[in-house]
Design a protein around this nucleic acid. Sequence first.
DNA 1: TTGTACGCGTTATCAA
DNA 2: TTGATAACGCGTACAA
Lengths: 339, 339
Amino acid sequence: MVTIYDIAAKANVSAMTVSRVINNTGKISEKTRVKVKRVMEEMNYVPNQTARSLVLQQTKLLFLLITDIMNPFYTTLSRGAEDAAKKNGYRLLFGNSDESIEKEADYITTILTARVDGVLVAPAGDPSLPHLETLRKHNVPFVLLDREVPGIECDIVLGDSKEGARQLVSHLVAAGHRHIAMVNGSPSVSSARLRLQGYQEGLKLSDLRYNADYLFETSFGPVNDLTDMEQWFRQLNPRPTAIVAGNNVLAVETLRMLRGRGIRVPDDLSLVCFDDLGPYSEAEPFLTVAAQQAYQFGYMGMQMLVERIQEKETARLPWKKIVLPAELIIRRSVQQLNE
Amino acid sequence: MVTIYDIAAKANVSAMTVSRVINNTGKISEKTRVKVKRVMEEMNYVPNQTARSLVLQQTKLLFLLITDIMNPFYTTLSRGAEDAAKKNGYRLLFGNSDESIEKEADYITTILTARVDGVLVAPAGDPSLPHLETLRKHNVPFVLLDREVPGIECDIVLGDSKEGARQLVSHLVAAGHRHIAMVNGSPSVSSARLRLQGYQEGLKLSDLRYNADYLFETSFGPVNDLTDMEQWFRQLNPRPTAIVAGNNVLAVETLRMLRGRGIRVPDDLSLVCFDDLGPYSEAEPFLTVAAQQAYQFGYMGMQMLVERIQEKETARLPWKKIVLPAELIIRRSVQQLNE
DNA sequence: TTGTACGCGTTATCAA
DNA sequence: TTGATAACGCGTACAA
């Protein structure tokens, strides 16, 4: 491994001078600068970030913890975070908790030992609280994404889940639907709770009664075994004419379940959901959705994180909260019942 | 920051003893071990991976460079790599080159300065050669994924692109298609070249003539502007009855282009592609594809990488090459022309 | 079983 | 404008 000492020796200067050339600090004569640069080229010198981090007490490394790397919402969000990180001179580590508190705990350990400068977290749910407290205790700045965690105050980027869900229901009602079921994420996830509330409010606004039997709660991630959902659906009476899915993954899973039972969408049943499907929606504009600005979640969250890191020593700013609206995109998955 | 010295002071032992407790090395009396452990708990000690890396000359950090984080093939592959890395006690950094040689170059720098122990690379294309040579020069073990790069010898996991493409064509021919076009990735990407060869062989096997006009070459990534593809398609004479897409992203883009022109699949035109669409195919089994074992690409590639890292000092093993077969999955995007 | 001295590669501080 | 020295937190080698 080539070090600044190797460079220094070959260039007949001290290691410090080499360091100054590398970092553009201090005053250096043009002559030595050129000479040192040339030697660095010759020897294929690459600075050792590890040693640098050790003395500078910062890694210029940020971490993004998402809950589902297969979900286009999160991959799009990741692109936003990546772009913003790069723009600010940071590198980005990704982690994928799979909606699991246990895997999340592992990543928290990784984050602490890797001494990253900050973290962007989409928490697995309310039980993430101790993880966030750990980060706080160790002075690791973090910004929450997409989900609130009761008990912790921090910077956060959220979607307007309640309003989005309300719009989805209103859209269904306007199309003549009266029996509207919901397949939602776990109630331990704040966005799931708000979407349920929005669903309930939407019903109320149209003088429809909320029926708990019409609600199926699972995880926001892929559902390995559909039998529970199938059983829930089979015993619904009367059978709903429409289903609201709490997110895109659950919409896909619901679609899968319905297909297994020979039920066509939208002919036999209408389906809408939160979050868009990325490129698939463009290719095949099928699902009517409340689309979130996924890229912005990542980009703005990263901006907030970087600001928080850089203002660490200065005045403590109040926590910031950004709420991004969801946009109703009407496509073909809803049948018009009232003509 | 709490260091082993702080622990040592409070526990009335030397820093070395603390280090031994942490790493379970050397002989330590049960009494001091318990005492040290307790103090570590009390003080919320977290080992400093940076300092550790500096002295051990290894980071236990691996890097996965993919070319498209929005592509289900790569996200699935990532899951495989992640699982295998974790199983081997490594952490994983992700990077996304966006099919761009320039962004790839940036990541190569990141990789070198971060001093990761090894890299899994899906190269952007043949021009990636200097990047790989840089890694080689700096002694960073790497394994190539999905794409070969002429001029470099290394471990690699490939899909059987030629055979997969041949199968897709044969399937179309069997359905009565005679005018089969192809939308493919850049010829500077080895898998694109092989898929083109497979396409040509497939035609030949059925005594069909290869017509260069029927080939449209672009990037394997998202196509921002569809006008070129549209123009290509419009001037085709006779108009093909089927299109083979070089990967899933291009299939989606082709679908988008066709939709823009009011052409329905498969009614007006049939479409098949390399790579599956992940969960979407399950929900809506539409596209007929040559599916690759994406998860295995990542998992096996990571295994090879870890082996290569660990055998770095011992005998130099010959380069390994794994070729994974593609599986034809027949769905609804091909119209039967011959009844 | 435990401790001391040193080095990993870099930068900050202070002196020249 | 340049250099010598110490320090970042940890683990290895050797000594006690």
